[in-house]
Amino acid sequence: MNRADGRRFRVDRELKEMAKVFRMPFGTRLLYLYLPALFGHARGAEGTAQQDGGDTEPEVREGDR
């Protein structure tokens, strides 16, 4: 789902790639990437530049585990 409580959220593509390359555990991704993105706290450079206007993608998928 890319919506929770009506909010749109996404994690920067670059941060997702970083998490993939470094094989960050799912719990760490959830804590530092997905949840902060949901509440608009943590962003990578991409998100800082263009705020929330871009596309939304499914973030937490079974394949991420």
């Binding site: 790639e17 530092y32 902060p36 991409e46």
Partner: peptide, 14 residues
């Protein structure tokens, strides 16, 4: 891989 990405890929507020 230990990687340095072209565009850093750092978590900006950490």
């Amino acid at each position: 891989c230990g990687a340095v990405f072209q565009r850093d890929a750092l978590i900006e507020n950490l």
